[in-house]
Design a protein around this nucleic acid. Structure first.
Lengths: 257, 257
DNA sequence: CCGACTCTGTGAATATTGTTACAATGTAGC
DNA sequence: GCTACATTGTAACAATATTCACAGAGTCGG
């Protein structure tokens, strides 16, 4: 099943049609599960750290240990897109990273809008990791007339009325929604109408989007609440202070998160 | 299968042993899947909004529509814990909300520590929704000697050295980790040693905890990166501006998030 | 070049999660 | 009280996701 006969990793290619066609290499054979797509950025992040540490090669087992995921899962996930490894050796870190980045499209620059410029919106604008990873905040919107017109960094806060025209003009496909729950669905509808196809929602409500768009929800409250159940019900584990912490354990269930 | 013969919702009880024993009502018959536990807070949130709207009764179908989830899934999820509904009518909003809150244990107060008092830590301390839902920030820690000793609100920022003693003393079981990636695993280990059993991690790295503890990861960057794939690969959907937005659609896949 | 070892990619088996479909129960109008 | 209708809880089924396990390739030290 290996097609690259030998040679250095840098020459490894995925299949006949040298270099990546358009990403989603083997994605012809059926759809790729979303759950796989969601793990890819986590693999990419870990690979980035490995590269920074100067590690050249990593096996699915090692990577899995770092992430608390089984080696088989990593191999299977990657196999949706091609063959990136070498028997007996593992994966070349730089090569695999570049491939995963290309698959996800995160080797490109993505313009992003922020809707809602309260504390959270402001914090996100100044969150440097976004810029560092290619997400460029390019438009700000707020409902509040007092804020509209204000200048932040080199951006002006726009009114929601201007949203459709500006987003289309700038071909913005991604937005971060940081408005109160009450206005979130309405804002999302406006975004979709304006051509946005991916929304990161911070509002504490499930916002619905049509099937041709994507949304992810971030809510610390919900995350905390989903853990209290176990605090309340389990009563296991060493008493605090007893039991030395060697941390040989891997993640609870082989599931990320 | 219905045991409550009739009577008002307020009198409904789940089974013989009146009132909730310790939560996890029917949780004897095997373990409850984590994925179910994760949906519960979302149901609870929606029920809270319904209650605030003055709605008295809701069917699994209506609730499912609000959340983009199938009615059957909601019924199945709830059935792990008991029988809360009434044929022909649905669920009493107040009653179901109180039951779900009790199952999750979010009708209690939970003391929480914040580790890492940078911008994010500060923002979380002042995020009122946490307090409003019973999460009381009760201890702050930072690695930076310049910050240690400073007073914020009525809390003092403590050094990491003090963490074990303070957390045990205050019986703190939950923590929010808001430190840089480099220090996250070490900090988590310290938390676990100090008796913490649930961690909300904001550091951009997969932090591993032993099987008797829980962790959830929040990372906007990863969330955005998992959506670029679709922007990059799909090219479906109405062109922006065409196609009226009636929003009859429900969520893409019947999956939350 | 050999032999012992490592590690990938994947078919098959298993485990987990979600849906369908319906009996049982209750509602509501008259 | 009777009839038409709504809705639950769940068994059976279907679909998804994960792991097992191994053939095939490649490594590595001498």
């Amino acid at each position: 099943m290996q097609r690259h006969s030998s040679g250095a990793f840098a020459e490894m290619r995925v299949n006949a049609e040298d270099s990546i066609p358009s990403s989603a290499l083997r994605a012809d054979e059926g759809e790729i599960p979303d759950i796989v797509i969601r793990r890819l950025p986590i693999y990419a992040r870990s690979l980035k750290y490995l590269a920074e540490e100067g590690v050249e090669t990593v096996s699915s087992g090692e990577l899995g240990n770092r992430l608390g995921v089984s080696a088989a899962q990593i191999r299977r996930d990657l196999s949706y897109f091609g063959e990136f490894g070498k028997q007996g050796k593992g994966y070349n870190v730089d090569f695999l990273l570049s491939q995963v980045n290309a698959i996800l499209g995160i080797d490109k620059e993505w313009p992003v809008a922020i809707i809602g410029f309260g504390h959270l919106g402001r914090a996100l604008l100044h969150y440097d990791a976004l810029k560092a990873q290619g997400f460029r905040i390019q438009a700000l919107f707020d409902h509040n007339p007092e804020k509209v017109g204000q200048k932040v960094d080199n951006l002006v806060i726009h009114s929601m009325d201007e949203l459709p025209a500006l987003l289309r003009e700038q071909k913005i496909k991604m937005a971060i929604l940081a408005v109160p729950a009450g206005g979130a669905q309405e804002a999302a509808d406006a975004l979709i109408d304006a051509g946005v196809r991916a929304i990161l929602n911070y509002a504490p409500i499930i916002v619905q989007v049509p099937p041709y768009a994507r949304i992810r929800h971030i809510d610390p409250l919900v995350a905390l609440q989903s853990m209290t159940y176990y605090l309340y019900n389990d009563e296991e584990g060493p008493q605090a202070g007893i039991g030395r912490n060697g941390r040989e354990y891997r993640a609870r269930s082989g599931k990320l998160d």
